[in-house]
Design a protein around this nucleic acid. Sequence first.
RNA 1: GCCCCCGUAGCUCAGUAGGAUAGAGCGCACCCCUCCUAAGGGUGAGGUCACACGUUCGAAUCGUGUCGGGGGCACCA
Length: 586
Amino acid sequence: MKNQVAKLLSQALQQLTADAVIPADGIPVPVIERARESRHGDFACNIALVLAKSARVRPRELAEKLVAALPQNQLVERVEVAGPGFINFYLTADAYHRLVPQAIEQGHSFGRSDIGRGQRVQVEFVSANPTGPLHVGHGRGAAYGAVVADLLEAVGFDVHREYYVNDAGRQMDILATSVWLRYLELCDQELVFPSNGYKGDYIWDIAATLHREHGAAYSHPVDELFREIPADEPAGGDKELHIDALIARSKGLLGDNRYRFVFELALNVILDDIRDDLALFGVTYEEWYSERTLTESGAVNRAIEKLRSMDQVYESSGALWFRSTAFGDEKDRVVVRENGQHTYFAADIAYHMDKLERGFERVIDVWGADHHGYVPRVKAALEAMGDDPSRLDVLLVQFANLYRGGEKVQMSTRSGSFVTLRELRKEVGRDAARFFYVMRKCEQHLDFDLDLAKSHSADNPVYYVQYAHARVCSVLRQAAEKGISAEPSPGTENLDRLTEEHEKALLSSLSRYGELVETSAINKEPHQLCQYLRELANEFHTYYNAHQFLVEDGRLRDARIKLILAVQQVLRNGLNLLGVSAPERM
RNA sequence: GCCCCCGUAGCUCAGUAGGAUAGAGCGCACCCCUCCUAAGGGUGAGGUCACACGUUCGAAUCGUGUCGGGGGCACCA
């Protein structure tokens, strides 16, 4: 609808350019917006105000000329120049009416578009280290990333969802060692568990699996394991040195293959759990990309060599540094440590290089806000390698705070008192969790009210929207019971009977849906969709209270049934994009 | 110290690429089912858009500065 108005204006602009009223250079794309007030018509455009200066014509005069140059169109009833030079468009009733059969016939595809033109875009999200279950912080990234991906797909992008699995590195070694130590305890050995190890119950579970399936086959005397290991922090030593020494000793005692076995077991159990958890949350991926394959395939070395060949790295005090300051970073960053191991950052450079090499035109990373310091250096690396850093879009998601009974739920990884995503899902349900997570802009701190998310009341936005959908279903059931056919008449037949203000408001909202999906997708702002659905549901509920749908007058009844069928479809499509169910009854 | 985000109604937040009289929900005060689910609806009170200066025909929106809140600044992952 908006696009059609914009097209008309573009044609008028071309006409005026040909007539030399407007200078040919630098004509902006006309910005059409929804009029905020009905007395300003349906759409408004400020192009005359914008162009007045360069055309050296008074805004109102320019507006008049544009209006005169507008081609005829059956959607537009009349056009007015108002205020300082706004052009207001008043659309015909038919322009709105034709949306109703469209929504009903197009069903699931109503509101979708192809503005993405099949461009390949990768969305990487969650990517939590597989060292334990996902917690509520990851949940927000999961919900947000999933909806952004779905929105982009809905507007015609070729979306590739990816989870980057950090299956290499020290944290994973700490995990493997933690599991093995717990296993040794299950083999009736006594030891002091390292303060820096993973202490969650799930570590015991994995150790128990190892013990159940392999008995004491992986057991070693503990005194051998701890012999001459530097003291742990509680014993007055350094927890990092302590755990690193334990890892090295574990590898030595178990040997490569057996250590690998414990490592893989831990990794697979946790990764399966994460995968399962996300799937139950309605979040799925096209690909789980292993960090290890990045090293094994030589991509990391290749990235480093690429930087070297472009003279973007230098050696200093035994390490290899990337000149990220040359690209706006605040300090240079190490890519290969003094001990010869590459840093996590080096793998990240390789990963992003690989993403672009795989042919994605746009790459979106969803990160926790605590990683924001990472953005400049990753972009710097892409630029240094000769890529366009603007192809990478990093979306930072702020943390979510849970509230229960008006009190903030205290969470800290250290004390092990963090709430897992699974627990949250169990408590408030998938629908509420998905909706609440994306209700706010991602850069906004999120206050997640658990009581509200659980409440079955109008205060709860999820139920409110779902209830509107269920109510439509209920009306249709009611019709069936009364022996009234809810089968709508073809096309726009009878829709001219919709003359109530409530009905016009609903038609107007329906006409906004497509635009809304587009702006939500382009701006990566799912909260706009939440907001919209709430408004649409509100208009429906108001309508429901004010008017009977299943009236005696068959033509009016048909028109109303068609209208609510269209509303039902849009509610369903919108909820579906959010990963929230649209129940038939509640 | 440097960097990022935020500051709009009592509370939680919108404000659609600067636009015509700043919006919603909650809370508060009233009111509405002999009627398709009251898990609903309506009416009302409530704002110096943190502050100052600047850009513009026009600023909650853009720029600079100040104040206030949150987060980040590893040869960790």
